[in-house]
Simulated assay, not measured.
Amino acid sequence: MTGSGRIDSNIPNVARMYDYYLGGYHNFAVDREAAEKVLAIFPDTPAAARTNRRFLQRAVRYLAEEAGIRQFLDIGAGLPTQGNVHEVAPAGCKVVYVDNDPVAVAQARTLVEDLPDVSVALADLRDPDGLLADPHVCGHLDLTEPVAILMVSLLHFVPDDAKPGRLIAQLRDATAPGSHLVVSHLTLDGVAEAPARQGQEVYRSSTAPIVPRTRTDILRLFEGYDLVEPGLVWLGEWRPDAPGGPEEVSHGYGGVGMRPKY
């Protein structure tokens, strides 16, 4: 992506690669070429991407139906795909999608332009104050009431020197008690060194190098939150719709935390 908001079709875009894994059509030849390199190393990546999407949907249903959340802030929402938050959450819930990619934001706004309860902000997690002050966020959500912050397949594109834990803490402290955090995060736990290195090499030539983390490192991102059962687990194991059903392919961990009400 260039600074002017024009599409750079010469560099693989991680959001478009993810769209390709999900079977979408918002991608270019350069994205498909890079994605196919990943698939040659990890052939089950599309299945893992679908598992990740189903985790997001289960988390949103839990938050709306059991935790009583009516406001959702989806950061790093990327390109429009099937099963968006506003399509899963009950009618009347407020949803704000946030991304730092102008083209993704433009596409998302086209998708939801007729939906009064949905807004889209061009903002960046690395500037939490600016994100929360964006009129598409603060004009749509009431941060004095609980809100769910969604960071699904986002934080493994945030390098350690950007201090993701500190960024999350700033957002946490700006939300009301009873607010929630949803995280899914890629890991290389259990992956052999050679394919892990090869996969990371593909992403080094993309718009966002990938930073897989261990379960222990991901757990630290929930500091200040109480983890909801079953805690931080493989994505397919987080409150599955059919316990004991077919095992889902997971390349990462997922969890939901609540900011204590006391």
Rank of each mutant, 00 (worst) to 15 (best):
S250N: 09
N27A: 03
P260N: 15
L235S: 09
V191R: 05
M1N: 13
Y203S: 14
L79M: 05
G130I: 03
M151P: 01
M17A: 04
Y62V: 09
D189N: 07
H185C: 10
P80S: 02
Q170M: 04
I69L: 14
D129I: 06
T45W: 04
Y225A: 08
P177E: 14
H26L: 12
H26K: 10
L167S: 13
L115N: 10
I168Y: 09
I168K: 12
M17F: 01
V191I: 05
G24P: 11
D8A: 08
L219A: 13
T187P: 02
I11Q: 15
V249S: 05
K37V: 00
L143K: 03
S206C: 07
A162W: 04
V233M: 14
A196Y: 09
E201W: 13
Q170Y: 02
E145N: 05
C93G: 03
G3L: 14
G139S: 09
S4I: 00
R215K: 12
S184T: 13
R109H: 09
Y20T: 02
G130V: 01
A49D: 14
L150F: 03
R53S: 15
I149T: 07
L219N: 14
D101A: 02
E66W: 05
V103D: 13
V98M: 05
L155D: 12
R166L: 04
A48Y: 04
G236F: 08
L141C: 13
P243G: 12
